[in-house]
């Protein structure tokens, strides 16, 4: 089943959805959003693509396989907790640093963001893993 409309939509929507998911991920700390929602959106972007072009073509277009992505996510989440241990605090303590402080680009970065990134990848990887294997049949 090939639908031209779906394919064109998927091709153009995918990058937009990926960027949107990143935005949702980043702003999650202060406004609605976060790793879980972002991850679902990232997964949905690729599922949309897979509905248009088939699973195999989609998998070829992704730099890492969903299994690896899930693993990376888990490792990131774990690493974010270990950073605190390395700095002599209790496992999973939030560690913060501020980049460009004083300028208008002030950027607060902390291990919770890294943790959220881990959640983001894990959820997206899980979603793709399950959906692709079901859709592939």
């Amino acid at each position: 089943m090939e639908s031209v409309i779906l394919q064109i939509a998927a091709r153009h929507m995918r990058p937009l959805l990926v960027i949107l998911s990143l935005v949702v991920l980043y702003r999650g700390h202060n406004e609605p959003g976060g790793g879980f929602i972002g991850g679902l959106m990232l997964g949905a972007a690729y599922i949309l693509f897979a509905m248009g072009f088939g699973v195999q073509k989609t998998q070829k277009s992704i730099p890492v396989s969903p299994v690896i992505l899930t693993g990376i996510g888990l490792l990131l989440a774990l690493a974010s907790g270990l950073i605190a241990v390395l700095m002599g605090h209790v496992f999973m303590t939030g560690e913060w640093t501020t980049l460009f402080s004083g300028t208008s680009f002030e950027l607060k970065l902390g291990t919770p963001l890294l943790f959220d990134l881990g959640v983001y990848f894990t959820v997206a990887g899980m979603l793709m893993l399950v959906m692709f294997s079901i859709m592939e049949e």
Partner: peptide
Amino acid sequence: FGRNIVNVILVD
């Protein structure tokens, strides 16, 4: 340092 309580609970 987060205003979104739900997310802060989840990730911190």
